[in-house]
C-alpha cells in the first residue's frame, strides 16, 4: 500500500506529512519518560520483522498480491507509541534506501500504515480484549485489529487519492476496500501466527500473563 510519488498533490502530501511528523514527535516525547531499556532490542527486532515480512508478498486473488503491514501486530506487542516509531523507521528505510513509497508521499504512508493502522488497530484490540482476559479472546481481538488496521489504511489512502484528484471516490473506494478486505485476512493470519510464536518464547511480552500464570507454564 506504499504510495509512490506522483499519486498525491502537494497540499495532500504536506498535510499528511505535518500530521505524521507531529505524531512521531509526540510518540518520542511520550516514550522519553518511560522507555524500558529491556524493550529497546525488542523494538529493533519488531522493526526488522516488519521490514522482512513486508518484502514477502503473498498472492491474494486474480493477479494481485498483498503483504503484512504489521501496524496492529507491533501495537499489540509494544503499545501504540513505540509502534508508531517502529512503523515509521521501517517506512523511512524503505523510502530512502529501497525507493518503496515516494519521498514526498512518505508522510502519507506513515499516516496510513504507521499512525492510523497503529491507533485503530490498538483501539480494536483493547476494546475487544475487554470482553475477557482469556487468551483465545485476545487472539480474536488481534485478528480483528489486524484487519481493521489494513482497512483503515486503505480507506485513508483512497481518500488521499480522491482529495488529490487522482481517482474518483465511487471507483477507488470499492476497489481499494474490496482488495484490502482480502489482504486484511492475510494480515490477521500472520499477526495471530506471530503472536503465537511470541507467546511461546516470551509470554512476558505477550500475552503478558500474570506472574503466577507464567510460573505455572514453566
Amino acid at each position: 500500500m506504499h504510495i509512490p510519488d506522483g499519486f498525491l498533490d502537494l497540499q495532500t502530501s504536506v498535510a499528511a506529512g505535518a500530521i505524521s511528523a507531529g505524531a512521531v514527535v509526540y510518540a518520542s516525547y511520550a516514550l522519553r519518560r518511560r522507555v524500558d531499556p529491556e524493550k529497546i532490542p525488542v523494538m529493533g527486532v519488531a522493526g526488522a520483522f516488519v521490514f522482512a515480512a513486508q518484502m514477502i508478498n503473498f498472492p491474494v486473488v486474480g493477479g494481485t498480491s498483498g503483504h503484512l503491514v504489521g501496524a496492529a501486530l507491533v501495537a499489540i506487542l509494544l503499545g501504540p507509541w513505540a509502534a508508531v516509531l517502529v512503523m515509521t523507521a521501517v517506512l523511512v528505510i524503505q523510502c530512502f534506501v529501497f525507493q518503496d513509497g515516494g519521498v514526498l508521499a512518505l508522510g502519507a504512508n506513515v499516516l496510513n500504515m504507521g499512525l492510523v493502522g497503529v491507533l485503530l488497530g490498538y483501539a480494536t484490540y483493547a476494546s475487544v480484549g475487554k470482553i475477557s482476559r482469556r487468551v483465545s479472546v485476545r487472539y480474536v481481538a488481534s485478528f480483528l485489529a489486524a484487519w481493521v488496521a489494513v482497512m483503515a489504511g486503505a480507506f485513508l489512502c483512497s481518500w488521499e487519492l480522491i482529495i488529490s484528484g487522482t481517482a474518483a471516490p465511487q471507483v477507488v473506494l470499492p476497489a481499494m476496500l474490496g482488495v484490502h478486505a482480502l489482504i486484511g485476512v492475510g494480515e490477521g493470519v500472520i499477526t495471530v501466527a506471530a503472536l503465537a510464536l511470541v507467546s511461546r518464547s516470551r509470554p512476558d511480552i505477550w500475552p503478558a500473563l500474570e506472574p503466577a500464570e507464567v510460573a505455572q507454564q514453566k
Binding site: A52, I56, N57, F58
Partner: peptide
C-alpha cells in the same frame, strides 16, 4: 528476522500489490 528477510524474500509473489493493482 534476518533469515526471513534473506531466504524467503526471493520467493515473494511478483504480482502487483493492492494499490498498484487498483
Amino acid at each position: 528476522c534476518l533469515v526471513v528477510a534473506a531466504i524467503l524474500s526471493p520467493f515473494a509473489s511478483p504480482w502487483p500489490d493492492g494499490l498498484e493493482r487498483v
